[in-house]
Design a protein around this nucleic acid. Structure first.
Lengths: 187, 187
DNA sequence: AATAATTTGTGACAAATGTCACACGTTAAA
DNA sequence: TTTAACGTGTGACATTTGTCACAAATTATT
């Protein structure tokens, strides 16, 4: 059976088995329990994770101590604090596990190395960065244009699985509304 | 005197004069008057613009016909509909001039060509894409975390020039509040 | 200079959303 | 099994924000 990461990369760039083995040799495996973090505020994100199994959240706190969710992560998604990872600067966010997780990760150094060693991966990451940027642009469009009810319905439509896996108060936090408001959106 | 675009690119990657001339040969110059558009909804963004002089806005309309500003553009900034440009798909947004503008642009084809011909430019655009993504991530963080007053003050601090150049109702639209609300933020 | 269009501020009110409080059911831990 | 912690819904009320209306000031046009 094809390795799920190979399948994922091949959505963008075709690889020989040897090439994939070479790529994979730059990654490590780890498992984490529910509630364990993989990144905490003020640390430098020195790893980018690829989620084999499980569910995570990246989030931060405002001055009043309220939690805001920036991103969820599920199977076949990448997760890290992108800003901290790219700039190797202190992270403003936390990432931790909502479920027990099985993760692959690549360190910053290995990613730099792999980018230089293998032009295909430079192109892969460039494309991933472009699409990530487009996704963020669309999220901003949606935050400006759509009501919370529309954003809720859109998320439900796009990621129905998410609603069976994570508590609604986290969904509310992702959408930028209070949990009470989210709870009343159905009526 | 050094060409301002050379100066701009050299913030990321050093260039010889020959290299820069080669890059510049892939660009064209154009001027536009206030109110003229450079991209309209449903067109495909086939050019990326670099602003030599002037001020532009990229924006879209919601169902009720309200205008929302996605981005402003000023001297030394790039502007296009990034999603449409990258995917060569129909644009959801409009871009037009708030002032008379002097613009450089590169077509999609030329950018692809230049990326392949010159590895430095592949790296330049990859980096630009990364930093663009980081900026968008921070805008989302701010939309989730900060009140409209805080977002206003932050924008004022970051781009004081903007407030002398564009009407406040456009600022309001960028911030995601009504112009009346923005007007009352000072009190 | 006169006129029109645009920008901006403000009052009055409605609508949306947040906050606090509480109840109840589910899940996790002792 | 019992207890505690968590998740969820809902009422009451405060706060924020939007909408509509209008007037004054500024800018553009003839």
């Amino acid at each position: 059976m094809k390795h799920p990461l190979k399948q994922h990369i091949e959505e963008i760039i075709k690889l020989t088995d040897e090439e994939f083995e070479f790529i994979l040799s730059h990654f490590e495996t780890t498992t984490k329990r529910k509630y364990q973090y993989i990144l905490q505020e003020n640390e430098i994100a020195d790893k980018e994770y690829w989620i084999v199994k499980g569910c995570l959240k990246s989030y931060f706190f405002d001055e009043s101590g309220k939690e805001h969710i920036l991103q969820f992560g599920m199977e076949n998604w990448w997760i890290t604090d992108y800003e901290s990872f790219i700039k190797q600067s202190k992270s403003k966010i936390n990432i931790d596990c909502i479920e027990d997780c099985e993760l692959l990760y690549i360190t910053y150094e290995n990613r730099e190395k792999l980018t230089k060693e293998m032009h295909k991966m430079e192109r892969f990451w460039a494309k991933k960065s472009k699409f990530g940027r487009i996704a963020l642009q669309n999220r901003i469009l949606s935050l400006l244009k759509n009501s919370s009810k529309e954003r809720y319905e859109f998320l439900l439509e796009q990621y129905p699985k998410l609603f069976q896996r994570v508590p609604k108060k986290l969904i509310a936090s992702y959408l930028g509304v209070s949990r009470e408001t989210l709870s009343r959106l159905n009526s």
